[in-house]
Amino acid sequence: MNIFRILGDVSHLLAIIILLVKIHRSKSCAGISGKSQILFALVFTTRYLDLFTTFISLYNTVMKVIFLICAYITVYMIYVKFRKTFDSENDSFRLEFLLVPVTGLSFLENHSFTPLEILWTFSIYLESVAILPQLFMISKTGEAETITTHYLFFLGLYRALYIANWVWRYHTEKFYDQIAVVSGVVQTIFYCDFFYLYVTKVLKGKKLSLP
């Protein structure tokens, strides 16, 4: 466990909590893609099945359980509790365009051809593209609430920190998981455009709006 990994996990947790707090306080999930949140719930569900088979550490188990619970609460808030505020009109990304290739790829390129391992691989590939419905929604409406951009910033920061974590692990323990690293880099690239807007607009006190 290194500093990048810890900070990455903290950023990830912070992003999820920011989103939950935003929905809870404003009693609205306007501007949030329910589809991205369903994908994240699916990512955690398929990845953390090893909760039943492998014990890594107390930290690992607790974080997994927290992520799972938060993901399902978020989906519940969007589709049940604050359903009326959900902008389904603009959440129109076609999920099959992500799910079909990701499923196919996880069968083709994995560490071993076993159900748990294929599901783990599926979750890694799916996570790398799960934010796309959210980014699509922002590009469609042309704007995002500032708190939503903070959510995206911490989610992107988590990915960037994980890359630093892998560089560190490669040099210190020769650890290198190609599937996770390649997917993680792809995922981080999706945030680059957003990072640029975040730094040039949101951090200067302006609202994120696209021309």
């Binding site: 990845r47 550490s57 994995n110 560490h111 071993s112 998981d177 996770a180």
Partner: peptide
């Protein structure tokens, strides 16, 4: 040969 990985990250 494909190695079995221990997935210790989140």
């Amino acid at each position: 040969e494909k190695k079995s990985f221990k997935h210790d990250e989140l």
